[in-house]
Amino acid sequence: MDYHSPASFAEASALAANATGITRFLAGGTDVLVQLRSELVTPDTLIDIKKIEGVSDITKNADGSWTIGVAATGAEMSEHPELGGDWPGVVEAMDLIGSTQVQGRATLTGNLCNGSPAADSVPAMAAAGVTVTVTGPEGTREVAVEEIPTGPGKTSLSKGELVSAVHIPARGEDGGDAYLRFIPRTEMDIAVVGVGVNLRLDGDTVTEARVSLGAVAPTVLLVEDCAKAIIGSTLDDAALDALAAAASAACNPIDDKRGTIAFRTEVAGVLAKRAAKIAYARAKGEQA
């Protein structure tokens, strides 16, 4: 295995473009090292992007949007004095991944590019409308988060491409987001179901909504029917029931060691309701 630590994304991209065999980028390494140690994936070329300047920065831009460096860790996101105020759902989703120790290393970008259908931060990012900058041999492009994973362990990134920044939109007024996942224990598990909800209110009425599901299909799902179920409502019981039904209907899960089809389908609806209530309360400026 060759190990490189380039000083720029262009250099990283060039290394990857010219490499043969399996190439992996190393940010926090909490997936790459597990796969390496268990000999699931032994890269021929490993490109550590942490020596690139600014990759750990968390920046609030003038328009209120956020740029998150690709090596900024979950712990750094949680500790940031303002980020969690704007996007509590995204920060909490990231924070749910692994242990305190894993939080010291794991990144949004790694969680996204690992391509796991159960990645916790991805539904939260999709609901929040997060985009990423992809740097490749042909230059850079902006891609919506939900366009990155294409199946378990697979992404839409082509040879030589890597994510070079994460962009979270400006929170704006009267908005709130939330992410909930189901795991059998209280910590340390992979999501059996994950639900991200991001909405905006006008008074008591939901005017905008994005609802995203994780671990219930080969990739993260951004479910328009879920959004429709609550837009225009005050999140009354009927709207919540419609939301749950739409979430369950969108599921296309598998039976595996972590959960059954029936369980995932049912619980997706349960969590969608609970997450929507939290997002709603946050949009109203209430504690949740």
């Binding site: 224990r185 209280t186 910590e187």
Partner: peptide, 11 residues
């Protein structure tokens, strides 16, 4: 240990 789920402190 990720999938063989022994109790953790918060459980």
């Amino acid at each position: 240990f990720l999938d063989y789920r022994i109790p953790v402190a918060s459980d």
